[in-house]
Amino acid sequence: MFPALSVICFTLLSGAGYGLLILLCLDNAFDIGLALEGMRRNILAIVSLLLITIGLLCSTLHLANPKNAWRAFFRFRTSWLSREGVFAVLLYPFALFWLFMVWSNGVMPASGVEKLLAVVTFFLAVATLFSTGMIYACLKTIRQWNNALTPANYLLLGLMLGASIVLVGIDGGQGSTSAEKLVLGLTAIAALTKITYFYWIGKPAGPTINSALGFTRATVRLLDVGHGSGNFLTDEFGFELARTRLLWLRLVCIVCAFLLPILLLVSFDRSIFVNIAAMIFAFFGVFVERWLFFAEARHVVNLYHGAQRT
């Protein structure tokens, strides 16, 4: 699949934003020990909404005919893309109202309404992030996406990035150890899931050129693809990268997204610079991960263009 920058930025930024919002709401409603108070929390909440909004705006750049984008809210019953849009829009009033309550409440302990709003926002953020993953996971045409690890990755990486922002938001030295533990824990789980995913998609499966054309008892090879220059299908689905390049990028992804942040946080004393460095590496690593997510996905239509398997 062609790795479109608009979609990569959308899933990266919105993912981080939803992850951050989920953690903030959890902390507000159930006090998971982030030790975030007053202004710091408010600023982080605003950051999360900004990230979400920028991401969603990026996603509209992917549309060839954005003037009809408002229609995307009407197929909630069958389409994950529609569901994602509905959850994303539904989240705003609750999140803003929650932010208003938190803001006006200051350092006072959270009120009941505030907690209720936090819980609703939490569920909507989880639902949106899950739907983003399901947009890809529900496609039977792309085996690299069509599995349960896809939404799991989207959720975990979003949470991981969110946690790394929280850690920066808490001033280095005074920050809570639980925030650091959260980052470490989430990074470790996300890394495990992603590595499992890389193994998972390495296993050959799915249709072959033989079943695609119905000649299952003999070899089949493409003689002529029938079009002289590229077309929509080759532009969108024909993207291919050398195997060694892919492996290198996987390494970059694992090192930057997971290994370096963990190493930094474990081996240095807590300071704002370490936290910022860990966050930047995590974002860069997940950017590469998202790029790979598309670059490694092989749509079955490639079989008709001569690929022996996907």
Partner: peptide
């Protein structure tokens, strides 16, 4: 709205933007 999603879902390459 030209989101290409349906083309991703089609195994037969029948849809073109």
């Amino acid at each position: 709205m030209g989101c290409n999603y349906c083309a991703w879902a089609c195994p037969y390459g029948a849809r073109e933007l």
